[in-house]
């Protein structure tokens, strides 16, 4: 299996020389990182090249890297009184629309579209990540004309993250309510949402009103650098320090 992966990785590197932002291999999967400008010609090659033949686009996923690495509980630094017991509220589950969440440690653009490709003829899988250059107005070229299945997936990523897929024939909201405001899966969109809907007996119709439920998260978000998952290089640096 890994031999096959290495072959695919070598093939990709040879074919896309100089046009990739990165190629990584982990958990038995290959991830390519491409620039939005290069994505369209590369996608066409991925589909049509006889050695690659990724006929199927399995999935398109929007990702918001804004809160990457945010924790709510310091687990490593201790004071003279021991480890901190306090939870610092930082994630989207805990705030409402008036408050702004913490930014994470992610460097670079905030939004990305992640594509999963499948080659039926060669039995390969591939992941392609394409970062949107601008955070305020994230855009990526659409691949609907290359893979028809991208249609609804791109609509979904647009709906939930506000990523604009340039060249999409019909970029409408798909999962959220008619007249919905905002992009709910962004990390600065609170879990409780913004409005709630109820039937108003006086007006005898359904009305929208600001949410009344309290944000409530039971378990703090914690990152523990478990020694089992440290690789050798990380151990060496910590030993040096």
């Amino acid at each position: 299996m890994s031999e096959k992966l290495d072959r695919l990785a070598a093939c990709l590197e040879k074919k896309f020389k100089g046009r990739l932002q990165g190629l990584t291999q982990e958990c038995g999967e290959i991830t390519l990182q491409v620039a939005p400008g290069d994505w369209h010609p590369l996608a066409r090659m991925l589909r049509d090249d006889p050695e690659l033949r990724f006929e199927m686009l399995v999935d398109v996923c929007g990702v918001d890297y804004m809160a990457y690495g945010v924790t709510e509980w310091a687990t490593e630094t201790s004071s003279s009184e021991g480890f901190s017991r306090g939870v610092e509220e930082a994630t989207f589950g805990r705030f409402t629309f008036d408050e702004a969440p913490d930014a994470g440690q992610h460097q670079g653009p905030r939004f990305a579209a992640v594509y999963h490709l499948l080659s039926i003829s060669h039995n390969h899988r591939l992941r392609v990540r394409c970062f949107c250059p601008e955070d305020e107005f994230p855009t990526v070229p659409s691949v609907v004309e290359i893979w028809s299945s991208a249609n609804w997936f791109e609509r979904e990523a647009f709906d939930l993250y506000g990523i604009i897929f340039e060249g999409h024939p019909d970029l409408r909201r798909i999962l959220t309510d008619y007249g919905f405001v905002g992009h709910p899966f962004r990390k600065d969109f609170p879990l409780v949402g913004h409005v709630e809907m109820r039937y108003d007996p006086e007006q005898q119709r359904v009305i929208y009103q600001p949410v009344t439920i309290e944000p409530r998260v039971l378990v703090p978000r914690v990152i523990r650098n478990d020694h089992r998952y440290l690789d050798d290089s990380a151990e060496e640096t910590s030993a040096d320090a």
């Binding site: 982990e26 958990c27 999967e29 991830t31 399995v58 999935d59 996923c61 990702v63 990457y68 690495g69 924790t71 994470g104 992640v114 999963h116 899988r125 992941r127 378990v219 978000r221 914690v222 990152i223 523990r224 650098n225 478990d226 998952y229």
Partner: peptide, 29 residues
Amino acid sequence: CVPAGESYAAVEHPKGEFGVYMISDGANK
């Protein structure tokens, strides 16, 4: 806590390919 990284796991669901793409930043969520 799950080590930082990403994975895509697909199973042959009765309806087709059911995939779960997961990104972890090393946290317990």
